[in-house]
Simulated scan of single mutants.
Amino acid sequence: MTFEVEKAFYTLDKLIETYMEANNEPYLDSLSIVMQSLQKGEVPNGVNSQSFNQLYETVNQEGTDGESVRKTIQLALIKGMKGSTQHQHVITPDSVAMFMGYFIQKLMKDEQAFRIFDPASGAANLLTTVMNQVKAEIQGYGSEIDPTLLQIAVASANLQQLNIEFFHQDSLQKLLLDPVDVVVADLPVGYYPDDMNASTYKLQAKEGHSYAHHLFIEQGMNYTKTGGYLLFLVPNFLFTSDQSEQLQEYLRENAHIIGFLQLPLSMFKSEQHGKSIFIIQKKGKGTKPPKETLMAALPSLKDPNKTSAILRQIDSWFQKEMG
């Protein structure tokens, strides 16, 4: 029995819808319950047992790859997040997550095993995409404050048979985590409300609330080994907004900027929502900046010819800079 993503999603969606109606729960909460039930093999209250057992067998059959399971869950997440009013209920586009995985593969090409951390893991779609893509033995870590997203993340990682440990907390508080080799995150953009905790950061605002996306960069650095890499999805205005001078000074002291790749604006609602992939390395003994920072405006990822051309340019940059 081959795993067909669309067919599996259709069954999963029907199970979620029937659970929602029977238990009067929102879509994302119902997704979380159904996924946890798929892990345990226990039919949840109010759903069709035949459909559930069929999906359970499909997901758990020998030879099912984690990426197919992730894509099925992602379709349900996208549907659930469309109806959500909460700003943190957004999903990193697959094409962007794949690009970030591609860079991690290049940066860590000599490593057989390494540890990766997403401090803003949400439902762990970015983290699991990267882990499914990179050919190495990876121990993953994620931190998320939203309990529904965290439950979905845990069930998703288990169903994909990925080795990820999650923290349920405000990711800008201290974490019980040893420094990792790679940090990856789609940064939450906006102000961080806890001024008391923000005051423990070098990137706290001189007055008023601090930017969460700045603090997440510093927190990522706090939990990265010397010489480790950090890949962030950042707003295009990162270096032009107020407080950006402070950020630039912090980065000059603590990091080498490896690359800044602007994503096509067609991916976003408006120009002000535009984002870029920002890649840095934590400074330390033996590290040195690239002779030339990797800067590019990525074409529409729907255009295979332009995407191939930019990948060739990036490959040649890696060969020159990293051998």
Rank of each mutant, 00 (worst) to 15 (best):
Y192W: 00
Q272L: 11
A124P: 00
M322W: 08
L126E: 10
F239Y: 14
E67M: 10
L187D: 09
Q88F: 09
G190A: 09
G190I: 09
G227R: 01
E249Q: 12
T58H: 06
E292V: 12
M1Y: 06
G41W: 07
T72A: 08
L126Y: 11
H209K: 15
E25V: 13
T293K: 04
Q248Y: 01
M196R: 06
A123M: 05
P290E: 01
K282N: 02
E42Q: 12
D170I: 05
G66H: 09
Q319L: 10
R312Q: 11
E321V: 02
I138M: 13
T11A: 13
P304G: 01
D170Q: 02
V96L: 03
Y201P: 01
I78Q: 06
L38D: 07
D186K: 09
L77R: 05
G41T: 14
E144N: 05
K79H: 08
E6Q: 13
S300C: 04
S30H: 06
D65R: 12
L294P: 06
V154M: 09
S32N: 01
L107M: 15
V182R: 00
F3C: 09
H209F: 14
V47L: 02
K202T: 15
F99W: 14
M1A: 06
L215E: 04
G46K: 04
S241T: 13
I16G: 08
N24G: 09
N305Y: 09
E137M: 12
T307W: 07
K202G: 02
